[in-house]
Design a protein around this nucleic acid. Structure first.
Lengths: 160, 160
DNA sequence: GACGTGTTCTTTAAATTTGAACTACTGGGA
DNA sequence: TCCCAGTAGTTCAAATTTAAAGAACACGTC
């Protein structure tokens, strides 16, 4: 293993990193708070409902859902249990695989989402979207989209 | 209060938001893991050391530090206690305000940071920086910098 | 058809985070 | 001086997250 001096971040790179880090924390905190205050849902729970409601039959396998939410399986187990207690989601067993479990959004879950969505979207706008010009939005989508894509596939960087 | 239809996100806006959300989780997860694996520090703890080491006398008031880290005061109390146990930080009382507490990085803390930094920077590069072109980095810094700035000052958006 | 390996999800305990309450103090006025 | 609203940090209990271990099953191969 080489002990060579690492490539530190130059000023421009550092600025990008700091901005990303700050914006990430601040936006996350803001939205978490808005959601909990206005709808009693955590951001994780909200995202569960979003994902489930967006899919044809309103249900996804636990593992698939965990991947989409970028969360651990045990963490999802916990959250689905909470949502199930609240009546917003139910568990169904998978016909083709006895081990499998579907999380399915209930009507009540869809209703909760309907009620929470406007406030959440407004908060997303006020914290992030409406702060950026359409060009900046596009740049963000391109750049961070690529970042996300690579991390998802475990893809390596092209050789420098 | 108006019950008017909220302004939903159009496709471009949604793409930006999704990219931000995904990149945020994935990068955060990646770095958290790298840091813990390679240095035993959580990202929060790492950031505490970074902030303290960056300041002239290596010490900051608890509240100031909590603000910089975008974390709660009780959360910081917990982490500083952990870092103090590990010998990487010590608490000092503030001369001018009996209630005040300084967190100060120790030599051991600086050393821990020195050891953790190269791996962390490499991970930041591989997850984010080196994925982006210099132009994209600049756009990111500008856009998200503005996002962070507004959230920090609790500034409202300019009227649309 | 039995095996061995890899999945799927849950359970568990420990670590961390959160928000509310609490302690102790500051600072400015009446 | 005395009072009092506001601050600084901590404490506490509850909620959440994490990693590791476990239980049950799927699947390809022999």
């Amino acid at each position: 293993m080489s002990m060579s001096e690492p490539r530190w971040l130059d000023d421009a790179e550092k600025a990008a990193w700091i901005a990303f880090l700050s914006a990430t924390s601040l936006v996350g905190r803001k939205l978490e708070q808005q959601l909990k205050d206005d709808s009693g849902l955590s951001h994780t729970q909200y995202e569960v409902l979003v994902q489930l409601s967006a899919v044809p039959d309103g249900s996804l396998r636990m593992t698939e859902l965990a991947d989409r939410l970028v969360t651990s399986k045990s963490g999802l187990t916990y959250q689905i249990t909470q949502l199930e207690r609240a009546g917003l989601v139910i568990r169904r067993s998978c016909p083709s695989d006895v081990r499998g479990v579907f999380a399915e959004i209930t009507d009540q879950g869809r209703e909760a989402l309907r009620q929470a969505a406007p406030g959440h979207v407004a908060a997303v706008r006020s914290a992030l979207i409406d702060v950026l010009t359409p060009e900046q939005q596009a740049h963000l989508a391109t750049g961070l989209g690529e970042v996300a894509r690579r991390l998802r596939c475990g893809t390596q960087n092209p050789p420098t």
